[in-house]
Each structure stands twice: as C-alpha cells, then as structure tokens.
Design a binder for these strands. Structure first.
Lengths: 339, 339
DNA sequence: TTGAAAGCGGTACCAG
DNA sequence: CTGGTACCGCTTTCAA
C-alpha cells in the first residue's frame, strides 16, 4: 500500500466508459479519435493526476530514458563538475541520470557495470578507475551493444567514443612556461603509469624538455598514484634529492595541493624556491596562497560533450569519435620566478 | 535492435523444455521444484547470461529500487559529500540513486519532483532550493504517500523526517570563540531569512551575544543570499560601516570564502584586523591562507543518515524523526586575535 | 512436481 | 472513429 496507487489508463477508461486503447490514443491526440473524446480524456487525466507508467513503457521498448554514469568519486571537484554537465544535458533531453561510484576500485567498477546493465540503462558514461588494468568488462559492453562513452581516463578508443582534455599539449605548455619564467629543473608528479592521461601529460612534459634541449633526469619524474598522501610522499622524495627540482608540474589537483602542502611545510617559498603548476579549477586555484598557476579543464563542457555524444549514439549515430577539449593555462602566482 | 536482446525466462524455458513459471520458480530454489531442475536452470541462466528484467518486476510490484535525490547543485563540496554518503549507503542496500539538481530554482525543484514521481522512485531525499518559499509541492508528496527525507534546508518537519546540523549550537560556539579570543564587534553574514538554517544559525549568533551581554547591532547582521557575489557584497557593506566589525561569522562556505576575498582585497589582515570564521570542510579550510577556522559539518554522515532514514521508512517505519548531526568547531588561523 | 491462465500498464495491429 | 486481441517479462494463484 505504499504511495496510494497511481491512476492508470484502465481507471480513465472506466470513468470515460470507453476502452483502454481508445484512451491511450485520445491522450496522444491520435487523428482517428474524435476531438471531443481527446479533450475529455485529457481533462480527466489531468484531474485524476494520471502519469504514464514508465515501467510499462520500458517493458515494451527497452528505453527507460535512463543514463548510467560511473565515476571514481563524486566529491572531487573535477568529477562533480563533469557530473553537473552530464546531468544538465541529460535532463534537457529528457533523460534521468543514475550515478554510481567506483571508488577507484576494479571490483566496484565491474559491479557497477553489471548493475547498470541489469537495470537496462540506455547507455553508460564512465571514467575508468585507477585500479583498472584489464579492459574486458568494458569490451563486454561493446559485445552486448550497450552504448558507452568514456571521458578523461579512457580505453579502447577505437570502439568507444571519448572525451579527453589535451593532456599532452597542456603539460607541454605548462612546462614551457616554467622554463620561460626562470625555472631550470622541472619535476613531474603523475599517477599510475598505465593510465593514458598520465602517459599523455608525462609525454607533453618530456617533449617540452626536449624542445629546450634539456636532458631528462629520471629522478625528477615520480609517478605513483593519484591520491593526496601519495602526492605528498612523491613531493617529499623530490625535495629529498641531492639536487632537488626548482619547479614541479603536478598532473592533477589532488597531487598539486599535496605538493603545495609539502613544499610549504619544508619552509620553502613558492615560487622562489620551488615553482609549482597544477591542474585545477579557477576557484580552488584562487583559494590558496600563493594562488596556484594551473591548467584549467573545461570540466562542465566535458560533461556536456560526453552526454551529447551518448545521446547522438542513442539516436543511431554509430561513428566513434574522440573529442579533445582544449585546456587553458592560467598563470597566477605559484609559477613565475622572474618576469 | 539496440543492445542485442537480453535473455528472458522464456528463452530459458524453451531450452529446458519446461514452462516459464517453472523456470521462474527453479531459479529461486522453490521447494516444490526438483533439485535437479533447479540446478539445471541456474546453470543455464548463468550460461545464457540471464538477468531478470527490472521493468517487468517493477510493473508488478511498484518497487524499482531507485531512490531519487534533489540537491541545489552537485558541485558544491557540501552537497557532493552528502551525495557521496547517500550513494554509498543506497548501493550497500541494493538501491540505485537518481540525482537531480534544482539549481536553487523553484521551477526546477517542482519539475524534478514531478519527474521523480513519474519515474516511480521508491522515495526521495532532498535539500530545499533557496528560492523555495511555498511548500505545497512538498506537502503533495505526503498526500500521495511518497516517502521523503529532507536534509540541511528543511520544512514541514512534523511530516517528514529530516537530517540537519546543529546550526544554532555551532553558531553560538563560533561566536563565543571569537569573543573569547579578542574580537569585540562580531558581524554575521547569512542567507535568505526564510531558510530555517539561516534562522537557526543567526539565532545561535544572537544568543552568544546575549550570553555575553553584548548589545545587538542591526547593521552587523547581513542576510542576503547564499551566493559568492552576494557574499562579497555583504562583506563590502560591513567593511564600509562607520564602525566596521572586527570579526565576521559567515554561515557557510560560499559566504566565508567570499568574505575572505573581500577582506584581503581591502588590505586588512586576518585575524588581526578582521577575524573570520566560516563553515566548511577540512580540506578547503586548510587550502586558504590564513587557514580558515570553521565549523565542520559531518557531511558524509549526514548523507548516510538521510539514506538510512529513507530505507527504514521504505521498510515500513513510519515514525517521523529529526536527526541532528553534531558539528565541530575547528580553530585554525583566521579567528584568533589573542591567545 | 509442473503447467495454464490471469494480470501488472501500455502500445500496436486488425476488424469492424 | 472505436474495440478486441496480443504481447513485453515476470509472478501468482489454481489445477492437474
């Protein structure tokens, strides 16, 4: 007896004294129903607060108008903002969004995929978890023809459309900027090496060094995990080097703030002793002192784009695309040693 | 031909050469099916990757195991963290979560409620939008017996269970702390007066003044809107007073960071010239300089609690509760003028 | 131990 | 213009 029974077509039919199919058609202004009945039916539906039962609909055609989303977590601003873009776009197109979190765990991720498939969502938008090293559960989605769009951390890009930032280009620009403003020994703090975002950003960093004919020093590249504590440890290890870096490029917000914390705790000045560039949004960059120079992702747009890709796919567009969303390097206070 | 047909009981039945109901029962280990058939059926289900169709289920009993959530936005850390608590709890109990955002708009809020009801979610967890001044759309949920749990910004607490922080007590403690550590003229920046969180925190602030026999000065209380720009304007107006405050209590994170920005931009020192206390989480409080003394909400727990209240309600517990989640005052650098 | 039939709410097709 | 019938996938009597 939970929520007092919804009214169904049957109820309307009974009151109107006509058959169920007739009411169904009347409500959709079918041309072969008398205008009169149409009006009556609609008025009654209004009065009796009739709502089409989505489960009945979905039972016939498999289209519950629900999109599933899998993100590592909801709390990180980067993901929250992307979710926001997804949600707004989905709603604007008449879809609901079910959000699930992988907590960076392979097991969770697998279970979430399972659950969403079981729920018969029309499509899935996802960002890979860090732990994820084998792609079979994603590939399986292609096999059962479940539309999937990946963003940020992606895989199997020949089979699934994806949305990523221009990681290589942004890291290259950030590194170049550090070198242009007085830094000499630039270090890189990244996440697990198997993630392609790590590869790309690291590659951009290395390219910039090469552009400037700076020999690569392996100790200056620390790739552990995207995690606050790991980021702190990475920074500690850099500062403990016999010849520590005089600048650090941290490849995402978690790592950047971890680095900032550690540099400060060592009594070092930013940017004079160690310059710092991170990846983060405007707000967080401005909150800290010194204000963090950072690569800015257009997170909201990434969410929108991912959702649009999915909706296009649901409408039948089978082409696999890789959308690269440009980033912008925003110079603030933490990076410039000299004008 | 979207996602290649799921296998149904019918498919299994055909292969096994038995009737559909039989398979249905076999899969649930019904006692009146031969052990043999049970085993066979389950094995086959496994092989053929059978998934019960949730729409068919939901069509019979109205229990899609989906919870709807309405929040003002996803991006604000406060909400993101609560969502996280809700999501984890929901999943742990076998529920999906559909998240919708009101964008602080009355219209969106109404539409979201509508949509979730149409979708036949089993219950709703929500935080009121700021714009919301009339409660009828929420009251309507009670009429149709849709379980509703409110958090943070609540209404009709006699009919709906809710989860709130101890706003009055926390504001009182924060104000007392300011007075204890050298501040004399404490101002309060709040949001729209019709929100009960605003009322409660303001009340706590006023109580603290009274406790200390400090006359209340109306100009020191500015309640506009919870919004970054509005918060800046509020702070500006305070600093422009003939006798400006020497301390500010900002009743949430958005307002606190806005206040900090403006105070700094005036070249005033925190806390020496103007002491500041906000409401925010640990991480953000520590990012800024000086580190922000702040009331800390147990956001994740608030989400968990709200979800548990809903699940209990879904299990039949009709008692209406008001859960108050304690806060903690965390003294950092922005508030203490003197030891 | 199993099967047949009805029903959940709606749509589509054919008949009249 | 309207009604009858069948079906989507599953559960639940009731009969056998």
């Amino acid at each position: 007896m939970e929520h007092s029974k919804h009214t169904s077509l049957k109820d309307l039919a009974r009151v109107l004294g006509v058959s169920i199919p007739t009411v169904s058609r009347a409500l959709k202004d079918s041309p072969d129903i008398s205008r009169d009945l149409c009006e009556q039916a609609k008025r009654l539906a209004q009065e009796m607060n009739y709502r089409p039962n989505p489960f009945a609909m979905s039972l016939r055609k498999n289209t519950p108008r629900i999109i599933g989303v899998i993100v590592p977590d909801i709390v990180t601003h980067f993901f929250a903002s992307i979710l926001s873009g997804i949600e707004d776009t989905a709603v604007a197109n008449g879809y609901f969004v079910i959000i699930t979190t992988s907590h960076e765990s392979y097991e969770h991720e697998k279970r979430n995929i399972e659950n969403l498939v079981n729920m018969r969502v029309e499509g899935i938008i996802a960002c890979l978890s860090q732990e994820m090293t084998d792609y079979s559960h994603w590939a399986a989605l292609a096999d059962i023809n479940m539309p999937l769009i990946l963003f940020d951390r992606v895989c199997l890009t020949d089979r699934f459309s994806s949305v990523v930032a221009d990681g290589e280009q942004s890291a290259r620009a950030a590194t170049q900027h550090l070198l242009d403003t007085g830094s000499r020994r630039v270090a890189f703090i990244g996440g697990a090496n198997h993630l392609d975002i790590v590869k790309r950003r690291k590659h951009g960093y290395l390219e910039a060094l090469r552009d400037n004919r700076i020999p690569i020093e392996k100790e200056l590249v620390v790739c552990r995990k995207i995690d606050y504590e790991e980021g702190k440890a990475a920074t500690e290890s850099l500062l403990a080097l016999p010849q520590p870096p005089d600048a650090i490029l941290a490849m995402n917000d978690t790592l950047a703030f971890a680095a900032m914390e550690v540099i400060k705790s060592h009594g070092l000045r930013i940017p004079q002793d160690v310059a710092l560039i991170g990846y983060t949004d405007e707000q967080h960059a401005n909150y800290v002192e010194p204000k963090l120079s950072a690569v800015c992702h257009q997170t909201y747009q990434m969410g929108q784009t991912a959702c649009h890709l999915l909706i296009d796919r649901l409408k039948g567009d089978k082409t696999v695309r890789q959308v690269v969303v440009p980033t912008s390097l925003q110079i603030r206070e933490s990076s410039v040693k000299e004008g």
